[in-house]
Design a protein around this nucleic acid. Sequence first.
DNA 1: TCAATATATGAACATATGCTCATATATTGA
DNA 2: TCAATATATGAGCATATGTTCATATATTGA
Lengths: 110, 110
Amino acid sequence: MSMDFEKEEVSATSNQLDEETLFVVSQTFKALSDPTRIRILNLLCSGEYSVNDLAEKLNLGQSTVSHQLRFLKQLRLVKYRRAGTTLYYSEDDDHVMNLLKQAIEHAIHH
Amino acid sequence: MSMDFEKEEVSATSNQLDEETLFVVSQTFKALSDPTRIRILNLLCSGEYSVNDLAEKLNLGQSTVSHQLRFLKQLRLVKYRRAGTTLYYSEDDDHVMNLLKQAIEHAIHH
DNA sequence: TCAATATATGAACATATGCTCATATATTGA
DNA sequence: TCAATATATGAGCATATGTTCATATATTGA
């Protein structure tokens, strides 16, 4: 068995990010880099919304919203609960939502 | 003259982000959504580097690094200082670098 | 079971993105 | 001024991305 280094120590030593960290970080920011997704996530900050609710409030096509929700769902940034034929989506990642809030706050106050 | 609302109050009322905020936020995250740019910014966390330094340390083409630095420069995320023919690049936006550090920390510890 | 409603999906399209190659530009020292 | 070195730039290319359209799927109430 080789020495058991923490990722933290490795990066502190080499100053380089490992492949997996790089992938996770870039994916996270990619999720937040599109205006449509930002608007969806921003609305979900204030509670649950169905697909049609989101589409109406944001003036987007139902298909567009559904596609983006699938994207966000795959990254586990949102989750949903079913009520009949309606799916209520809500946020599912405090850390990422926090990054978004910070960026919005910063943008607004500058 | 119309009433002078703060952006903050508007968004608190309508729960919607204005066009400009949306643009700034998406641009910011777009800058952080590419592995190459993440690696460059992560290195710049530890000090100044010339274009060639960055290319060598990160195993990237000189042109690739230069193009990405131009991108980051336009968003004012990096700046440079000249020393002869060499340009030393360094970080220029504490807030955005902070977002990056948070995401990296979170990715590493999960 | 069937119609109505809500959502998901896939193909097609236009646009955006990132890299590479070749070359241009700029600064320095001789 | 000229060669050497460092960096910037633009075109071209392959791939990724986001939206739309049409249609599929799923759930419910009658």
